[in-house]
Amino acid sequence: MTPAGWRVFAAAVGAAALGWGLFGKWRAARTSRWAVGIIAGTLVALAAHPGWADRLATLPHMIRIRLIMGIVSVLVMVVNVEAIRRSRLRERYALLWIGTSLFILAGALFTGWLDRLSAALGMQYVSIIVAVIFVFLLLVAFQFSVEISRLNEDRARLARRLALLETKWEMQKVGPSTEQTPADASAPTDSRVQPPS
């Protein structure tokens, strides 16, 4: 495709996403729609004025890396907040992620302490390849966090149901206000799950 063709294509995709973000009912998720709207707006702006991409290419190396890291950390935060909002992720697991992204954001905004750290450790500034691998690892680990949350919820649901059934069963057998039930003898501490932390 010609450069003009790409511009028309990007503008079309951007406009479609913008429409979806602004008017679509995407499970009535407000923050997702904002995110889609920002991406769409960027696409439309790039399509309308491709000189932005050229200007970006002329920026110093460090500035570009810092931009990318900043954008990644903000995206991680948005995704985390949205996942909690949809009850797909528990705050317990999100705190680590948000902490990490705040750390990266601090590195992107203020380089002084990073320079001092890299000088102290004798290492170069992170290369863009490491950053890309890092992003993938973030995605994989994030998925794990969501899975853990879901499994925890299933486990809790099972435990509640089991306890309700057990009580019903015992009451049918011996009536509600007896002092001792036969199940007591068989319910010592066996393979109980220890509480988290």
């Binding site: 435990a159 057990e166 009580t167 009451m171 039930t181 319910a187």
Partner: peptide, 21 residues
Amino acid sequence: RVARSAGAVVLDLPCNLGVGG
């Protein structure tokens, strides 16, 4: 066991769900 013999109905959860659970 203590709660049962004191006259309470007991839901004995098989694993720790946290206070909320």
